[in-house]
């Protein structure tokens, strides 16, 4: 231990935070080096004076402002997005998105079918599923095409459509399926997030839970991934465990998403 290295450790030594071999070496050097001992004494004085500086008393206004921010955040968590006028609903749902809604429902029917198919399903069932898969593939292409056509509509228009759906008190399959399609396929993160939020009210429906589950591995936005994980954790659906496990172990995943998936696994 030389003088230069000893100086590096002086603050920790003064604070009594230097233990182990490094501490022993520093102390041994100090015993043999009057210059370092003198410097240590001077620095200890300066640190002691620094530590004695009085702390300013925070003003009551700081507390008020911070607690107000907490209240604002709590309100924003509990408030639903402002629904768009219902008159816009018709323009969004009909007629172009009807086809999309049908495709989405069919795709989900397939996913639910595979999810529930018994391991030893008979040949007829397997053939039926294969046929369904083929139809879903074709429909998937159609959905992709329709979505591309939808690009002509601004994301604001699509968002308004989602919000209008969220405002429907007793939505039928068509409305829910429209939300599912938006969640799975809309290119806008904002639209997908709002679709997910709207679907939260219908999380008791298996079709909704499954749609979130099958959309999660394809989702690329960490924001939406986090919201989907929260959604699945809230449903306490054990069926979500494999997807969450895959996500928590996958490469290239945002660390916040990975940690959220690990947390959600403990909540299922």
């Amino acid at each position: 231990m030389n003088c230069e290295k000893t100086r590096e450790y002086m603050i920790e030594l003064i604070d009594g935070r230097l233990a182990g071999p490094a501490g022993d070496e520093v102390r041994a050097h100090l015993e043999a080096c009057p210059a370092c001992r003198a410097e240590l004494g001077e620095l200890r004085e300066t640190l002691a004076a620094l530590d004695r500086l009085p702390a300013p008393e925070p003003s009551p206004r700081l507390r008020e402002r911070v607690l107000a921010a907490v209240e604002r955040e709590k309100r924003s968590l509990h408030s639903a997005p402002t629904p768009a006028p219902l008159t816009r609903r018709r323009s969004w749902l009909f007629p172009a998105t009807q086809a999309l809604a049908a495709c989405g429902l069919l795709a989900l029917g397939f996913f639910i079918g595979t999810r529930r198919a018994p391991p030893g399903a008979d040949l007829a069932t397997q053939r039926e599923l294969a046929d369904l898969r083929s139809r879903v593939d074709s429909m998937g292409q159609l959905v992709g095409y329709s979505i591309l056509q939808q690009q002509d509509r601004s994301s604001n228009d699509r968002l308004e459509g989602v919000l209008a759906s969220a405002a429907v008190r007793k939505p039928g399959d068509t409305v829910i399926n429209g939300l599912i399609t938006s969640l799975a396929l809309d290119p806008s993160v904002n639209v997908r997030l709002n679709a997910l939020q709207a679907l939260y009210a219908h999380r008791d429906k298996e079709v909704v839970r499954t749609s979130v589950l099958v959309s999660l591995p394809r989702e690329t936005s960490p924001l939406v991934q986090l919201a989907m994980i929260d959604f699945l954790a809230a449903t306490r659906d054990r069926g979500a465990a494999p997807a969450l496990q895959r996500l928590s172990a996958a490469d290239g995943i945002d660390h916040n998403v990975r940690e959220a998936a690990q947390r959600a696994l403990t909540q299922l």
Binding site: L13, G16, R17, R27, L40, G41, R44, D51
Partner: peptide
């Protein structure tokens, strides 16, 4: 100099 140094933080 009060050496050896104190062992506890202030």
């Amino acid at each position: 100099l009060d050496f050896p140094v104190q062992l506890r933080p202030p």
